[in-house]
């Protein structure tokens, strides 16, 4: 990764008279190296500064989550380091009968798993079709999706709520309801993986078709094995998104606390006045959500980079 993009330091020049490439004898060679070193030092300082800014909030969050609830109260405080480190908040999340945290966590995990599977199937179907199959109405579909995408997503919240309610998928049924609305329109997010399919040479399909394979077989046996990076990217995105959704999740599940997702539950702890002293619990809950997601993301970072880079280049 790092080799290819390095810009070679050019201290050579083509000597046209002699027809050879020779190294330039630069009178200020030493000061140039010094300049280079100074630039690099500057960059290191900047990078360290950036890293501190980037990491500080997360480190603070972890600090707060370990503050002792018993001796230092669970509200906001103006100091950073806990006076007494403890696992009070975590213990409360797991053990206290009043805590629904595990339930919320399970809800979200369930939603995320279902989304990861169904949404991936939807996205791959659409992007494969639009990328590699030619049929009447293909352009029309792409234009319609483009136009639909310009409507703000929250516009239709009230309609979706009542549609789900007709199916019995609000409040107590909020979990399947949320899965349904997350995946139903997910085919519209086909751009990135279509960009990926576009790069696979068409000759592969054609030779297989000549050999008598059906389109379905081409899809399953030839394209899918090549599409591993984009499949993983799609799964990763589909899995991560439900963890952060507050708006739809709270709108669909309102009033039914056992059916919240983690985002709704934790958001309420800090933004609804009924909850006094829940700030450190929010931090602990936040850490428990962030750690596995971050670990997963970092582990699959490579595919993510391929996905966003490809998507950005192809629009």
């Amino acid at each position: 990764m790092s080799k290819k993009n390095e810009i070679p330091e050019v201290d050579i020049v083509i000597d046209e008279q002699k027809g050879v490439i020779r190294e330039v004898k630069q009178p200020n060679l030493r000061s140039k190296a010094g300049h280079e070193r100074r630039v690099n030092t500057g960059i290191y300082i900047l990078l360290v500064l950036i890293s501190v800014i980037w990491l500080a909030p997360f480190v603070f969050l972890v600090f707060q989550s370990f503050r002792s609830y018993a001796t230092e109260d669970g509200g906001m405080v103006a100091y950073l380091l806990p006076k007494q480190w403890s696992l009070d908040n975590y213990r409360w999340l797991f053990n206290d009968p009043k805590s629904n945290f595990l339930r919320w966590y399970g809800n979200t995990l369930l939603i995320a798993l279902f989304c990861a599977v169904i949404q991936t199937v939807m996205v791959l179907s659409v992007s494969y079709t639009l990328s590699r199959l030619r049929f009447k109405g293909r352009k029309l579909i792409m234009n319609v999706v483009l136009v639909l995408g310009m409507f703000p997503g929250f516009l239709t919240m009230i309609t979706l709520y009542f549609l789900l309610k007709q199916l019995g998928l609000t409040q107590q049924g909020a979990i399947p309801g949320l899965i349904l609305i997350y995946v139903a329109s997910s085919g519209m997010g086909y751009y990135i993986s279509k960009g990926f399919f576009d790069t696979i040479p068409k000759s592969l399909d054609e030779s297989a078709r000549i050999d008598g394979a059906t389109r379905f077989q081409v899809f399953l046996k030839i394209i899918m094995p090549l599409a591993k990076p984009i499949v993983i990217y799609t799964i990763l995105m589909a899995f991560m998104a439900p963890w952060g959704d507050y708006v739809f999740a709270s709108y669909v599940a309102f009033g039914s606390e056992p059916n919240y997702n983690v985002a709704v539950g934790l958001y309420r702890w800090v933004n609804v006045n009924d909850y006094q002293g829940y700030f450190t619990r929010f931090c602990a809950g936040g850490v428990l959500v962030a750690v596995p997601i971050t670990a997963l993301f970092l582990a699959l970072q490579k595919y993510y980079v391929e996905g966003v880079t490809g998507g950005a280049v192809k629009g």
Partner: peptide, 21 residues
């Protein structure tokens, strides 16, 4: 019995009377 604070209750009830408490 579910925890829905006094601040949210009215909004929720107005949004959907049928689903409300």
């Amino acid at each position: 019995v579910l925890p829905v604070g006094e601040g949210d209750a009215a909004n929720n009830v107005i949004t959907d009377v049928e689903a409300a408490a």
